[in-house]
Computed example of a mutant assay.
Amino acid sequence: MTFSFDTTTQLWLEISPASIEQSWQQSQSCSTPEGRWHTYLNQICLNTFLPWLQAEYEPNATAWQTLHPLAAIWEVVNGTAIEIQGKRLILIPSKSLDTSEFYIPQEWVDLPSWIGDYYLAVQINLDEGWLRIWGYTTHQEIVAKSSYDASDRNYYLEEEFLNQDITLLWVIRQVSPAEPTRATLPITQTLQQNYGASLLQRLSNPDLALLRLQVPFEFWGTLLEESSTLERLYQQRRGVKQIVNLGQWWQNRFEETWQSLENLMETGYNASLLNLRDSEQNVIKRVKLVNLEGTDRQFVLLLVLETEPDRRLGIRVRLGTTESPLCLPSNLRLALISASGEILQSVEARSVDNFIQLKRFKCPKKMRFSIEVSLDNFSFIEEFTT
């Protein structure tokens, strides 16, 4: 419900005790104190502001979840997005008493799929149970008038550039719905698939805090622009294993990190290094680029699938290299591991090998296993289900 308006027509809304309790419980699944705090404040903000917005102005307003689930966003970035008839509101909640400037995380300003039209500064007082919208601005204004702090990757806009009368926002939307609100952004670059996977693996370490500051923004930003990367990062940091579903490969549904051999060859890779026969029919071949953390070598992991007459799945696993020298390092090991952790078979490279492979094996439906690539004290493990 609306709590009150002050003389500058700032919007004040009452926060229900139930929302505070519910938001606190939801925040406890996050992997870091920062993520829990973001989730707590943003869930309160969304639960309080969105019903008011729907009741007063925009019945069809919805929380933005087009690219990533909100929980995954709040794990790493403060802010909530709401969609209203082709426009996007970005709410940035804070408990700070200082309203001399409005801070906006860089992600909400510089990422093409994240940017909004209107940005609302939200102050939350949990002790007294209220929030207020103490000002708003547009993306254009932020780009033109804010200052950027590279140390925390936030934009800061002085209070004097904010419009404190939020009722004007709805008036402008009615009178001039086509008014430009967004600045033009430069074209962003796309990370190479193998580097993106390596970066995701690194950031999945639950001991890392302030993830958005761990790598250069151009890398971090392109990760967030990928449709499922942030959710995968969120799940991995919470200890939820990502399992490759081989059964879905027959419906042409592939995990992003498993690409076709043709795509890999377009980058200049010589498929003959894997000693494949061109005549193979009715099989699925997918490859994954593997970067072993702590080493400077990159490898190609190949899976070849074919159905058996008894409806089991026949699987071949092969490991090659993408780099010169073309021979694999000695002691590089490829292993098949059961769901219980037992090593079912393994093979170790010699200094003269340019690929190694496991013996062909068969799996019934819904069987789980893992493939491990290891060198010295470093290893990579991928889990599969049929």
Rank of each mutant, 00 (worst) to 15 (best):
L111P: 00
L111Q: 09
L111F: 11
P112D: 13
S113H: 15
W114E: 08
W114M: 15
W114H: 11
I115E: 03
G116C: 11
G116R: 02
D117M: 04
Y118I: 10
Y119S: 02
L120E: 01
L120V: 15
V122A: 08
Q123F: 09
Q123E: 13
I124H: 05
L126M: 11
D127C: 06
D127K: 14
E128N: 12
W130I: 03
L131C: 09
L131Q: 07
R132F: 01
R132W: 03
R132S: 10
R132Q: 13
R132Y: 03
R132E: 06
I133T: 10
I133V: 15
W134S: 01
G135V: 00
Y136C: 03
Y136M: 05
T137A: 06
T137D: 01
T137S: 13
T138Y: 04
H139C: 08
H139E: 05
Q140M: 11
Q140I: 13
E141D: 14
E141N: 13
V143I: 15
A144H: 12
A144W: 04
K145G: 02
S146W: 04
S147K: 12
S147P: 00
Y148D: 03
D149V: 08
D149G: 04
A150W: 06
S151A: 14
D152G: 00
D152E: 12
D152F: 02
D152K: 07
R153S: 11
R153C: 08
N154C: 15
N154H: 14
N154K: 13
Y155I: 00
Y156V: 00
Y156K: 08
Y156H: 14
